[in-house]
Each structure stands twice: as structure tokens, then as C-alpha cells.
Design a protein around this nucleic acid. Structure first.
Length: 649
RNA sequence: GGGUCCGUGGCCUAGCUAGGAUAAGGCACCUGCCUCCGGAGCAGGUGAUCCCGGGUUCAAAUCCCGGCGGACCCGCCA
């Protein structure tokens, strides 16, 4: 028989048996059966502590209660339960028919192959995942990379679960940052791109340069004025900031001196801040001239993104341009309807959405998943000059994302918690109540660099490309050391795969809510608990199957797998579908990363102590089946976190 | 000032949603293991007031309250 989730079947059987037994023994009690993993195998494979908490209600003691429940159990409808035993303070310990489980799991894995473990949901949904959405003014950095890998992994997981997933990238081409970049482009033209092979890297550098130039100019004036009016203390603070920016500029100058001159010359003839404002306004109003200035430079930056994303095997179904949303009438419609909702007040002649007022209703909070004490401030919807603001456009975008979706998952950093809540509240007020409930903020802690705060304006960041380069170089060294017999080409190919995987794994394997302090040594540590370690176990397994030939897996008798490590490996393979189900329900890629690591660890132990090729025929066939099932399981599990194992490394 | 999140051996991390039996891994350190399917490995060892204090409970790393420390948010920036 082929099981799509053997361990899950065992869980259901155990729960059924105990539920029925409790009902027979204590019909008056409401019992919710929870099954745990016992601390060691001597206590069986599952344990139930219900008697410990219920004994008092049944006016008995836990031991006695467990004995009574045990007497009422019947195993006739279950195939995987070996026995149930009462132990110490009152546990019911369930023992699995281990070798049956191992045999069924191996057969199922070998039969289902690429589909093994991907248990389908009975409620398929249309799910939009918006992730990455890096502003097109600088390259993708290691800070964004966590977003990219988490989002991509979520998409892979939900897709494997049977949902219809679409991945969207929000191109934030409206706003001051892009306008500032466009201003530099206006002054220096295509020269800003010729500096570097990759357009996004060149653009990032120019963005820092123009930011510094404009900032320095502004701060100089301010400091002068402060000194003139005798505010020396304040002037000194401004001057400190000024010298900070001058430092940044001199850093950039080394690589950008010709462009810097052009920009400086251009700035003499105009007021930069005024020019930037003009560009911003013109673009939002849809002026052809502004489009011709902004679109090409943003497109170039996105080309750079796509190159990086291709490198890490991440793709998108839609690239949504923010400007398209502004130029369509959605934003205006949203504004008009919000105004009529009674939740907008005017402060200094500017409309503000009083998000906090709606959130006073505890019911609304519960529906939208807003913590009770969360303080929600108002949201300014328009600037005094009538131009839209980012959150306003984001509300409109949210509506757009729901056009063909039941659920929208926004992969957005923890620092955006408040605006994400404000958007949901706006949806609610606008009458999109269900959508407001089904818009999820998938939050994750920021990636920080020890020593300084990463800042894209200040050019203080590490690009994902750079990190990948380092990782690939490291991987290349390792491959060359261990497999010098492989061709140069193949070693390059392997290094690329291993290098990218190492970076992905290190960013995915940490629970999302935790901050990550970036550490070169840790990301490039290829020992245990890393992608290279996991991939290495796969390559070893492949070494065995390729030497024997996979065809011979057809016939095997799991009864020959009698060693504890064989059983352990088999059981862990059997658990994969259940691990997948839980990871997909909890949106938890890191659980899968941890699973891959422990599966690899167990395989390595097995590998070390139980030879396959040299074993006697029956044992060899059974072990070969185990190894092949391991490979299938590992491949399928790794795929969910965006990693493809290599056969040699 | 208010709020949100995080706080687990020297360092990094899992476990917390759904409270249960000796708190699980990695790095570092120490001891063994390559005539044996690939040593990016394996076997073992040293090392923990689970931030602190209360509370709930037969039972708390896990739930509640109050502190402390760190990060972040509270913009006519995005």
C-alpha cells in the first residue's frame, strides 16, 4: 500500500484509538487528545499525558485512570500501533510497528518519487506572495536576501501543498528616492551606468553619490544659518552630520570621480531639491518627459535584480509597477472612499486616516490579528502639494493584489508592522473586510551587520552578489581540495550550486522573528548544520546508488533492516510528509531546513557504520532501498527551501 | 514617553502556537576513528541560574503579571 503520509496515518490512528477509549471509559469528560514525542525510545513513539491533567476531574489518580483507559482501547482498526503501555506518573505510551512503518514509508517514497511528501491540501486557495520588492535605487543586499529566500521558500511550500501561488514583485518607482536618482541621471546621463558591469551596482553607487551631494549642500546651508543666528550648539550637531556625509562622499569618490564631477557641475545651475520635487511631481502626473527619464533607469536597475535573482533561482510571476497604480484611478478611488468613511480628519489641511479609531473595537482587532495593546497612529494620506504618499498607494496595491486571490502574504520586515496594520485597517474600512483578514504580514527580523547600521542611502551595505561571490569562491576551494579529479567546468558548476545554497540555508534556517547578526564566518561555515553538509550527505548517497544502479531497488524486503540506525533513518524518512504538512500550515520554512539537517546527520551515521555495496544480497537490496528513499526525501525537502543537491561535490 | 518583537552552555541556534518524563543541535575546546560505498565525515567528552521576580498548575523554557537588557516603530520618507 502507498501512503502519502505514513507518519500522519499513525498519528490519526493513535488519536482515534485513545479518543474512543476515553469516551468509553469516561463518557462525561471532554477530552482533547494531544500526542507528544517521548523523550526517549524506551517510552515508545508517541505519548499522551491527558490522564495527568484529567485525573482530578474524574476523581481518581493518573495511574489508575490510564489503566482504565488502556482497558478500553481497541487496536483492531489500526495498522501501525504495536501496543499501548501505561507508564510512571500516568502516561499512555504508544508503540509503533516500526519495521512496518519503515517498509511502508520506503515503498511509498520509491513509488511517489518527486511527489513524495507533498501532501495536498483539501482546501486549495489562490495565494499571492509579495516579496523582495527592493527599491530600484541600489542592488539587492544581504538584508533583502532574507526576504527573498523566505518569500521564495513560502511560495515553493504552498505550491507543493496544492495551492495556486503567484509571486509578485512591487516595483517602487514612485517617490523621492527614485526621483533623486532620476535627477542624477538627468545631469550625467548614461555615464552613470558605464562604471560597472552590473547596472544595479552602478546605480547604487550613483544614488549614494547624489544623496551625499544634496545632503551636504543642505547641511552646509543649515549650519551657516544656525551660526549666523548664534545657535552654535545646534550648528555643531549639523556639522557633525555634515562631516559624516563628506566622509561617505570621499569613499564613493574613489570609484566614481568622473561622475561626481559631472554631477557637481550640473548642480551649480539649479536647486537640486527643487529639481527633485519637480521630477517627482511630473512623474506622478504622468508626464512623458518624466517617464522617459525614470523608466529607463529603473528598468536597468531591475535588469540587475533579475540577474541576481536568476543566480539564486528565484523568479516572479508579476512585476507590479507602483506608477501604474498611481496613473490608474485606483488611488483616487481609494482616497475618495476613505474620505466618505468618516475615518478621515484634516490636520494642517492634509487628510489623515484615523486608523486607531477603528481599532478601538476589540472585535476588529481580533479579526485582523492586531495585538490588544498595539498603539496605532493616524496615517497621512496626501502631501500638502496633493501628491500621494507611499502608504496610500500601498492600500490601492493591496486591493489590486486581491483581485484574483483569496489570501495575500506580504513578506515584509518587522519594522513595517505598523504600516502593515494600517493598510489592513484601511481595507476593512473600505469594506474589504474579508480581504483585510486574509492579508498576512509575514514578518521577519532584520539582518544587521555588527559595527554599523546598514544604510542604502549611505552606501553602507553588503550586496547579495558579493556574498554569493565569496561563498562560491569558498565552495570552489573546497571542491578543488576534495575532488581535484573533477573537471574545471564541473567544479565551477558545483561551487556555484553549493555557494548559493550555503547562503540560502544560513538565512532560512533561523526562525524568522529573530534578528540576524550577519557573520561571514557563520555563513561561510561549511561544516555541520549547513547546506554543504546536507548536500554532502546527498552526494555520498548518490555515490552508492550510482555504483549499484538504481534499477535494482525494485525488489527489497524491509525485514532485513534490523539495525537501530537503519530504523532511525527509515522513521525519519517516514516523518517527512508530516513535517511538510506542519511546515506549510505554519508557514515555517526553517522547520524544513532543520529537518534536512537532522536527516543528513542520521544518514551520515548510518553511512559510517553500515556498508551497502559490500553487504550480503538481501541486506544490500534493503539498504539500497533505504538510501534511494533517503535521496528522494532529501531532494524533495531541499526543493522546498530552494536548494537543489548535486550528485558529486 | 508609548508600543511591538527578541533574550536558551563562552558564541550561534532548535524547542514556546497546542504546558508534561534526563532542555536538543552546531561553533569553539578535549579524546579517539581513513589498507573500509567520498573524512565538507563518524564515535565520544567538558560545558546551562532556559534574562530576573512573582503568579496559575499535580507539572512552566513554554501560559499570565511586573521588571531588566537589546532591536525596531510611533514622518507631509519609502
Amino acid at each position: 500500500m502507498v501512503y502519502d503520509n505514513p507518519w500522519g496515518t499513525f498519528l490519526v490512528e493513535a488519536r482515534d484509538v485513545l479518543e474512543k477509549a476515553f469516551k468509553l471509559a469516561y463518557p462525561e469528560l471532554e477530552v482533547k487528545i494531544q500526542l507528544d514525542k517521548p523523550p526517549s525510545r524506551e517510552y515508545g513513539d508517541l505519548s499522551c499525558s491527558a490522564c495527568l491533567s484529567l485525573a482530578k476531574k474524574a476523581s481518581t489518580n493518573p495511574m489508575e485512570m490510564a489503566e482504565v483507559v488502556l482497558k478500553h482501547t481497541s487496536l483492531k482498526d489500526s495498522s501501525f500501533i504495536e501496543k499501548i503501555v501505561v507508564s510512571k506518573p500516568g502516561y499512555l505510551n504508544i508503540y509503533l510497528k516500526r519495521s512496518l512503518m519503515v517498509g511502508e514509508a520506503l515503498k511509498s517514497a520509491l513509488t511517489l518519487k518527486d511527489e513524495w511528501g507533498y501532501v495536498k491540501t483539501d482546501k486549495p486557495l489562490r495565494i499571492v506572495i509579495e516579496h523582495t520588492s527592493v527599491n530600484p535605487i541600489h542592488p539587492i543586499t544581504i538584508g533583502h536576501a532574507r526576504n527573498t529566500f523566505l518569500g521564495d521558500s513560502l511560495a515553493r511550500i504552498l505550491n507543493a501543498r496544492g495551492h495556486s501561488v503567484s509571486k509578485r514583485f512591487y516595483v517602487d518607482d514612485v517617490g523621492g528616492q527614485v526621483a533623486l536618482l532620476a535627477y542624477a541621471y538627468k545631469l550625467a546621463g548614461d555615464a552613470i551606468l558605464k562604471l560597472d558591469a552590473k547596472p544595479d551596482h552602478a546605480i547604487g553607487r550613483v544614488y549614494t553619490t547624489i544623496s551625499a551631494l544634496v545632503e551636504i549642500r543642505k547641511l552646509k546651508n543649515r549650519a551657516e544659518n544656525l551660526r549666523k543666528s548664534g545657535k552654535y550648539e545646534e550648528a555643531r550637531r549639523v556639522e557633525d552630520e555634515l562631516s559624516d556625509w563628506i566622509g561617505i562622499l570621499s569613499e564613493v569618490e574613489k570609484k566614481n570621480s568622473d561622475v561626481l564631477q559631472t554631477l557637481l557641475n550640473g548642480m551649480k545651475f539649479s536647486d537640486p531639491e527643487e529639481e527633485v520635487r519637480e521630477i517627482l511631481k511630473a512623474y506622478e502626473l504622468g508626464s512623458e518627459q518624466a517617464k522617459q527619464l525614470i523608466r529607463p533607469i529603473v528598468e536597468k536597475c531591475i535588469m540587475g535584480f533579475k540577474e541576481t535573482l536568476e543566480r539564486v533561482d528565484v523568479s516572479f510571476d508579476f512585476w507590479d509597477w507602483e506608477s501604474e497604480i498611481v496613473w490608474s484611478s485606483i488611488v483616487r478611488r481609494v482616497l475618495n472612499r476613505l474620505m466618505k468613511s468618516g475615518c478621515v480628519k484634516f490636520e494642517n489641511n492634509v487628510p489623515e486616516f484615523e486608523a486607531g479609531r477603528i481599532a478601538e473595537d476589540p472585535l476588529v482587532r481580533r479579526r485582523l490579528g492586531i495585538p490588544d495593546g498595539f498603539e496605532i497612529s493616524s496615517l497621512t494620506l496626501l502631501r500638502a502639494d496633493g501628491l500621494t504618499l507611499y502608504p496610500t498607494r500601498d492600500i490601492a496595491y493591496s486591493i489590486l493584489k486581491f483581485q484574483n486571490a483569496d489570501v495575500v502574504i506580504n513578506v515584509v520586515g518587522f519594522d513595517q508592522t505598523l504600516p502593515q496594520i494600517q493598510v489592513r485597517l484601511a481595507l476593512y474600512v473600505l469594506g474589504y473586510k474579508e480581504q483585510a483578514e486574509n492579508q498576512l504580514h509575514y514578518s521577519y527580523g532584520l539582518v544587521k551587520f555588527p559595527g554599523f547600521k546598514m544604510s542604502s542611502r549611505r552606501g553602507r551595505y553588503i550586496t547579495l552578489d558579493h556574498l554569493l561571490d565569496e561563498s562560491e569562491a569558498r565552495a570552489y576551494m573546497e571542491v578543488s581540495k576534495i575532488s581535484p579529479h573533477l573537471s574545471e567546468d564541473e567544479r565551477r558548476r558545483i561551487a556555484k550550486s553549493v555557494g548559493v545554497s550555503a547562503v540560502k540555508y544560513s538565512l532560512i534556517s533561523v526562525e524568522p522573528s529573530k534578528d540576524v547578526v550577519f557573520d561571514w564566518d557563520r555563513v561561510l561555515d561549511f561544516k555541520r548544520n549547513s547546506a554543504p553538509f546536507i548536500m554532502y550527505s546527498y552526494a555520498r548517497a548518490h555515490g552508492i546508488t550510482s555504483k549499484i544502479g538504481v534499477e535494482s531497488v525494485e525488489e527489497f524486503d524491509p525485514a532485513f533492516l534490523t539495525q537501530p540506525l537503519e530504523e532511525e533513518l527509515g522513521l525519519n524518512i517516514a516523518m517527512f510528509p508530516q513535517v511538510f504538512v506542519e511546515a506549510s500550515e505554519n508557514l515555517s520554512p526553517h522547520t524544513l531546513a532543520m529537518y534536512c539537517n537532522s536527516l543528513a546527520t542520521i544518514f551520515n551515521s548510518f553511512y559510517d557504520s553500515h556498508p551497502v555495496i559490500k553487504a550480503e544480497k538481501n541486506v544490500r537490496e534493503a539498504r539500497l532501498a533505504l538510501v534511494e528513499a533517503f535521496k528522494i526525501t532529501m531532494r524533495n525537502a531541499l526543493k522546498l527551501i530552494g536548494i537543489t543537491p548535486v550528485e558529486r561535490m
